[in-house]
Design a binder for these strands. Structure first.
Lengths: 214, 214, 214, 214
DNA sequence: CATGAATGAGTTTTCATTCAT
DNA sequence: CATGAATGAAAACTCATTCAT
C-alpha cells in the first residue's frame, strides 16, 4: 500500500517520498492525529528511517510546510509574466494560486489549516510565505493603481489591513472552491479580481466610505 | 491555580466554569493538544466532574463551539438596530463582530481555527453559525444596494463567491487585528466597509473587471 | 425506568428493591461490569442510600449471594415432602431446583457463574449452599439405595466424587435448560433421574466399571 | 517478578511469554480484574509491546482461550489410541482430560470459568471446543454401547441433555479434583466412568426411570 | 543502509466511594 | 431520611522515539 517498496533509493528521492506521505497524512488527519507509523507505512519505509532523515515529527512537519510553501509561491511566480501589465499579472497570479491549491488540496490544508493551528513555530514558518505573497499581490495592486490613476497616497496601516483582507478573501475562496464542486480556478480568480479591483479602484479615487461619528 | 477553588457550586455555575476553562485551553493549545487534565485543573475541579457534566472531550468541545457561536452571533445582533439604514447596520454589525473577536480571542480561535480543523462534525457545528452570519451580512449589502442603486440583478453563484470572499476577508481581518497591537475594531470595520461598499458599488454599476480571453 | 420512585418506604422494603436491582444487574452484566450507578438507578434510589444500607459493592454482592442461595434451598425444600419415598423426594427436589433456576435466571447466574469467578470470599459463600444441596441429594440417593437394595457399602471418597459429579451435572443441565428454548424443568429433572438412578443402581449392584491395570 | 528480563527476543517467543502471563493472570484474577499492567509486568515486557503484538485486552483474552482450548483438545487426543476398544478410549480420554486440567489449572479456569462469564463472543470461542469434546465423548459412549448391546435408539434431545449432563459432570469433577488435595486424575476418571457407564448402560437397556404422573 | 524489537510518558475515560446539606 | 456535588485511584490504550543487529 502507498508507494511501491523499492530498495536502495538515493536519499533525496526517499526524502521526497516521505514528504509526500507526510503532507498527505498531515493534510487529511491533522498534525496531531497523524501518526509517524502511518506516515512511514504510506511512504513505504521503516520508521527509524524517517527519523534518520527527518529527525522528529516537528521537523518533518516543518519540512512539509516549507516544501509546500515553496511549491505554492513557485507556482504563482511561474504563472506570472513580469513584463505584462499589472492587472494581467494579478489575474495570472490568482489563477495560478487557485489552480495550485485545487491540485494540491493536502498541501493547501497543511499550509492554511494545520500550520496555523499547532503553535507559533509552525505559524511563523507559513507566515513567511504569506507575507511574501501579500507583498507580491499588494505591490501589483499598487503598481496597477499607479498606472491607472494618480498617486494614491494611502496610509500604510490602511494598506496593511487591505492586504490582509485581500489575502484572507483569497484563502477563503480557495477553501470554498475546493469544497464546492463545479467551481473552477478561473471563476474563483474572476471573483477575486472583481472584488479587489472595484474595491481598490473606488478607494483610490478617494471616495472612501466614511464612518459615522458615533 | 486558575479559578478560586470554591466548593459545592450548583451545576449550572460549574458548567460555565468548565466551559470557560475549556475554551481557553482549546483556543490556545488546540483541540488535540489540550488535555482534559489541564482543563479540569484550570476549572478548579477534578476530572471526573468534567466527565460527569460534559461527557467526553468531543462533547465538551462541541459545547464550547456552540456557546461561543451563540455568543458571537448574539453580540453582532445586539450591536445592530434593525430600523437603521442598511449601511449603518452593516457598519454596526462589523464593529460588533470585531469588538467581540478582540475581546474573546480564545473563543474566536475555537470557532475560526480549531473547529474547522478537527473533523466534519465540529466544522458543521460552526458552519451553521457562519452561514447565519453570511446570510445576515449579504442581505444587508443587497438591501443597501437596492436603496442606493437600481436593481442589481447579480447571478447567484457570483453572489455566493462574493459572500465567501467577504466573510473570509472579515475573518482574516479579525485574526490580523488580534495579532497586530494598535489596530482597533473600529479600524478593522472601516477597512471592511471601504472594501465591501466600494467593491459592491462598482460591481452593481455593472462595471465588473473583465478577464482576458486566454 | 426500573422501580417506581416511591418516597419513604420502610427500610426492609427498600433493601429488597436494592437487592432485586443488584441481582439483576450482577446476573446480567457480571460482578465487575456492574456499576453501582446502574444498580442504584434500577432500584430507584440514590447511590448514597445504597451505601448506607449495604456498605459496599462487595457487601452488596455477598448479600445477593446469600439471598439467592437461601431462596434456592428454600424452593427445593418446599418442593419435597419428607415423608415421601426417597426417589419421589429426589424427583421432586430436582424439579423444584430446575423450576427455580428457570424462574430466576439472574439469581442463578449470580450463584453459579458470578459468585465462583470473582474471588474466594464469594466462592466460599456459595459453596456453603452447594454443600448443603450436595448433602441433601446424596442422603436421598443413599436412603433410596438402602430401601431398594442391600447395604451398598460404598467407600466415602467415591461417594464424594459421585456427589460432585451429580451436582455438576445438574448445574450444567440448569444452564443448558435456561439457554435452550423448549426444555422444561420436568424434562431436565427426568434426564437427571434416569442418569443418576440407573448409574447409582448399577454401581450399588456392585457392577462397577473396572479400570484397566495400565 | 515473573520471567527473567531477557532482551530482544523474536516475536513468536515473546508472544508465548505474554500468553503465559495472560493465562495465569486471567485464570487467577478473572478477566475484568486482570489488568494489562499486571500481565505485561509478569511477562517481563512493557505494556505497549503487549498491545503491539496482541492488539487489545479482548484479543489477548481470545488468544488465551484459543491456545488453551487447543492445548486441552490436543492433550485428550494424544491420550487416546483410535484403534483401542471404545471403553478404553473413553477411559484414556478422561484420564488425559483430568491430567491436563490438573496440570494447567489457570488454563482450565480461563476455559471453564472466565470464558463463559464475560460475554457471548468469548463463550462462543470456548463452546466450539466444548462441542468438539461433547461430540467425541458421546460418540465413544454410543459406539461402546453398540458394541455391548443392541441398537439403543435414543431420541435426539434426550441425547443432547445427556451429553450436557456428562460434560457438566466431568467439568465439575475437574474443579473438584483441583480443589481437593489427594484426588488424582485417575480417581476422577474412574468416578466418571462408573457414572457414565452404568447410567448409559441401564438407559440403553430400556429400563429408564419413569416419572410419576403428578 | 535499513529494520525488528522495545519502551517512557502520556492520553481519555470509568468507578467505587464520600461529604455537606 | 435522602441526595446533589465531588473525587482519588486506576484502567485501557497510543505515540513519538530509540537501540541492537
Amino acid at each position: 500500500m502507498g508507494a511501491v517498496k523499492t530498495k536502495r533509493m538515493p536519499r533525496a528521492v526517499r526524502e521526497q517520498q516521505m514528504l509526500d506521505a507526510a503532507v498527505r497524512t498531515f493534510g487529511r488527519r491533522g498534525y496531531m492525529a497523524a501518526s509517524m507509523d502511518e506516515i512511514a507505512e504510506l511512504a513505504g519505509v521503516s520508521k527509524p528511517l524517517v527519523y534518520l532523515y527527518l529527525n522528529s515529527k516537528e521537523d518533518l512537519f516543518t519540512a512539509c510546510i516549507r516544501r509546500e510553501a515553496r511549491a505554492l509561491t513557485a507556482a504563482v511566480r511561474a504563472g506570472v509574466e513580469t513584463d505584462a501589465p499589472a492587472d494581467r499579472q494579478l489575474w495570472d497570479g490568482l489563477r495560478a494560486f487557485f489552480t495550485h491549491t485545487a491540485r494540491h488540496p493536502d498541501g493547501w490544508a497543511v499550509l492554511h489549516l494545520q500550520a496555523r493551528t499547532h503553535g507559533d513555530a509552525f505559524a511563523a514558518e507559513v507566515n513567511a510565505m504569506r507575507e511574501e505573497i501579500v507583498a507580491f499581490v499588494t505591490q501589483l495592486i499598487l503598481a496597477s493603481a499607479r498606472a491607472a490613476h494618480r498617486d494614491p497616497d494611502l496610509p500604510a496601516d490602511e494598506v496593511a489591513g487591505l492586504a490582509e483582507a485581500l489575502v484572507g478573501a483569497a484563502e477563503s475562496l480557495a477553501d470554498w472552491a475546493n469544497a464546492t464542486p463545479g467551481v473552477t480556478a478561473r471563476q474563483a480568480a474572476a471573483t477575486m479580481m472583481n472584488f479587489a479591483w472595484a474595491g481598490l479602484g473606488n478607494m483610490m479615487d478617494a471616495r472612501p466610505w466614511v464612518p459615522p461619528v458615533s
